[in-house]
Design a protein around this nucleic acid. Structure first.
Lengths: 260, 260
DNA sequence: CATCTCCGTTACTATTATAGTACCCTTATT
DNA sequence: AATAAGGGTACTATAATAGTAACGGAGATG
């Protein structure tokens, strides 16, 4: 929860959106008191806000058990947000083109606060992963994450590292902060990050940062993914890093133009 | 704009969502004064609300030209709304199954207010339409629309017909209210609606209503689509109406269980 | 080059909405 | 029947918003 003292900040809107954002893939129904507990907003206010959202069609209430769910207006809003997000629309054609041209799987993400947001993913037809998260937290175990971390300012990096838990996801996952810092240093000098079966066994990824050329700030990352059985790391580094960095600079140009 | 006298209704939340909903596929950037004009909300309030939405990450502002765009939080919210919308998740497997089993294109929509919301569409691989709308207004020219209209209460029907413009989309589009009423009567007795090249030349659709079995209220519709060149209407009516109505009842059961 | 205009932003209060407590009602539980 | 828990309502002190006014910068216009 934000705690803005800003005069030009509406706490009511913050609360309304906080309530709406409680509904997702894993939480399609919630009760009033549950919402009140989670958000810390008082019961009466939650009642007022939920009532408002129901009247507007963003939520709906089951008349028998009183459980609250997303309404049709949220569904429409969701699609508008998806299709109206200019960064996605800008990034998609470039990733599609590169994926088709070189027959590779590509993933991209944006940095927002301390986590990465999955922006667009294009998979080589034969590869299918299971349901991947929209918000990614395991930055230490991903090519995308390491590409971003390696190019942050040192203050911001230490800030993020403080709250980053180095969870062991595979035998090769980096779990010591010192090892991670060394990896990031190598990443920075190399110009691209390597995830060698650290997130998913049998999968190798290489990643490059995306940045806003004007502000020089890291905005996200792109990665290429390969099956380790088909592509040894040496082959990947020889044949694909050029493709990766070229795509990264194209994407950075787009981001720069949109964020201007 | 709602004008609720309701005591338990937050106008601030209404305004915040009104502002957010101005951003979609066709409007990825807007200025402050533009937002103020469109919404009728006073400039200072728009400034406060937009500022709030920017601080929360739902919008972002270009620092040079001050234009406002969707932010990463909206993108995340959009995906959560899409994947968290239980009606979609409930309807999808049934439509997928039917589409694969009978090799047909299927479209579905929900009634919300006076318009239909496109819920889920599954196309037979060889058919591709251009960008279809999320909100559908031409109810008179669509199988989905006519299936819904034919099963409304007469009061609600006249209410909707009042604001429905019978736009001519193809030579076969129904443009006279009397003809439409006759078609709806036929639709009701038949149990399914027919769109014979009235929306798109060369395409025939048949549609059936979806309803909540408890409340007996029409909730939406499903339709099957065919190329007129391949499937004459007589063949469609002989072979596919059973499939359509069976699917419609399965979907209605889902809707009933979720809306309880 | 001066002026005008538009837009975003800030300052300031009267007015209005919200927070929070208390209380009631319905439903589920024992 | 008693109890508990959750949803919904009433009420008022308190805090937030609406709206007017006014400022400053950027771009347009003469």
């Amino acid at each position: 929860m934000h705690s803005e003292n800003d005069k030009y900040f509406s706490k009511t809107i913050e609360k309304g959106l906080l309530i709406l954002s409680l509904f997702d893939r894993d939480h399609s129904k919630r009760s009033l008191s549950e919402i009140s507990q989670i958000t810390g907003i008082n019961k009466t206010s939650v009642f007022r806000f939920v009532n408002t959202l129901i009247e507007l069609g963003y939520l709906r209430k089951n008349s028998s058990n009183r459980l609250i769910r997303l309404g049709p207006k949220s569904f429409v809003l969701g699609q508008n947000f998806f299709h109206g997000y200019d960064l996605l629309q800008g990034v998609k054609p470039i990733i599609d083109k590169t994926s088709i041209q070189h027959n590779v799987s590509i993933d991209s993400a944006l940095l927002f606060g301390r986590s990465l947001i999955s922006l667009y993913r294009r998979e080589h037809p034969s590869l299918i992963y299971s349901r991947l998260p929209i918000l990614m937290d395991d930055l230490h175990a991903r090519a995308l994450g390491k590409a971003v971390l390696a190019n942050l300012e040192s203050e911001e990096l230490t800030e993020i590292l403080k709250s980053l838990r180095l969870t062991k996801l595979t035998p090769k996952t980096i779990t010591k902060k010192k090892d991670l810092l060394n990896d990031l240093k190598a990443t920075r000098s190399r110009g691209y990050s390597v995830n060698n079966e650290e997130y998913f066994p049998g999968m190798i990824f290489i990643g490059a940062p995306l940045s806003n050329y004007n502000t020089k700030v890291v905005a996200g990352a792109v990665s290429l993914g390969f099956r380790a059985a088909e592509f040894p790391l040496s082959i990947i580094e020889r044949n694909y890093t050029g493709i990766l960095t070229k795509m990264a600079s194209e994407l950075s140009a787009i981001i720069t133009s949109l964020d201007a």
